[in-house]
Structures are given as C-alpha cells and as structure tokens.
Amino acid sequence: MPGERNQDAGERLLPNGAAIIAAENCPALLTPAEARHFAALLRSEAARMRGENIVAARKQSLTEAVLGEVSGLEHAKDQSGTKHLYAHAHEIRGLAGMAGLSTAGRIANDLCQYLDALPADITLPDPMTVELHVRAIGRAARAPWEAEDVGTAVAETLNRLVARNLTQTRSAVEPVHDAPPEAAKPDAP
C-alpha cells in the first residue's frame, strides 16, 4: 500500500487499525527555514501585486474566453439535455471572476447550482428559468458596465425564481402518500 515505506518511521497505530504518519515523518517540500522564507514571500504585498499584474495582463484574453463560453451556452440551451449547458456555465463561473466579469460568473454559478439541485429523475430543467439565466449571463458578460448597476438585483430575482421552480418541481415528483386506511380514520360524527 502507498506510504508503507514509512512504516517504521514514527507511525502511530490507532485503535481501529489505521496509522498516522506524523508530518515530520512525511517528505517535506522545503527545509523549515526555507519554508518560512517562501511562505513570507507568498503572503507579501509584493507577490500579491505581481500576481494581480499577471491576471490584469490576461484580462482581455480571459474576457474573450468567457465570451466564447457564453456563445456556447446560448447554443447549448436549445439542445436537448443539460450536459453542454452545464459545461459552459461551469467554465464561465470559473473564468469570469478573473476577467472582471463577476456578475456573469455569479449568475453562471447560480445556473450550475440550479442544474445540480434538480431531482435526479428530472431530465429537463424549466426552459424559462434556463432562458432567463442565459440571457442575464450574456448581458452581464457583454455589457459589464450595466451589470455593475443591475447585476445584483437580476441575480437575486433569478435566485427567487430558481427557489420557486425547485419547490414546484420537487413537489411534483414527490410520491403521493396513500390515504390512511378507513379503519384508522376517526369515526364520523
């Protein structure tokens, strides 16, 4: 089994037969002094600024990638099934924030969560809910200056729509409980 090479190096057996290999007995990346030095660099303002410059320099290409995914999403909503729809929304939620399109990313995340929350036996999501999310994502990605003003309100409205839609969907698929047997009912007056 992996890790057995450390079997005699400070392992502590547990009552359930498992073993704990203490951190100091696991292979270390760096010497303790170098680890402290590197961690300090990682947490420094200078590193953060350099990293943000890297992200900023790629903003245009990230935006183009998001817009490509938005086009894919708009095409996918008219296809059967949710696989492609979910895949494009998932990519948008991953990339949009770094492209400065956080509202598009937030609504794409909401769409993913809606698709995730659908009961397993529901193969098709509500078309209107999908349509409104896709339109909102497209608008927020293509006109981010508008999204700053109205994006939060749109996202919250869509959240309420999703909540209502899921409640209706779940109540529609829940099994109907049998009526209690006649003998169990109280006597009629």
């Binding site: 392992e11 760096l30 680890a35 402290r36 953060r48 924030g97």
Partner: peptide, 25 residues
C-alpha cells in the same frame, strides 16, 4: 474558483509551511 492571487498564494503557503500528517487505513 474564481481564484484570487491572494487565495492561491495562501494555499501554497499552507502546504509549504504546515505540512499535514498522513493517515493510512
């Protein structure tokens, strides 16, 4: 995701500075 530079660097700092014990069962 979406990641920020700060959150990525903080996770790397964590694995470097505080290596975890391992469990085998």
């Amino acid at each position: 995701k979406p990641i920020t530079t700060q959150s990525l660097f903080a996770r790397i700092a964590e694995i470097v500075e505080h290596p975890r014990a391992f469990v085998r069962c």
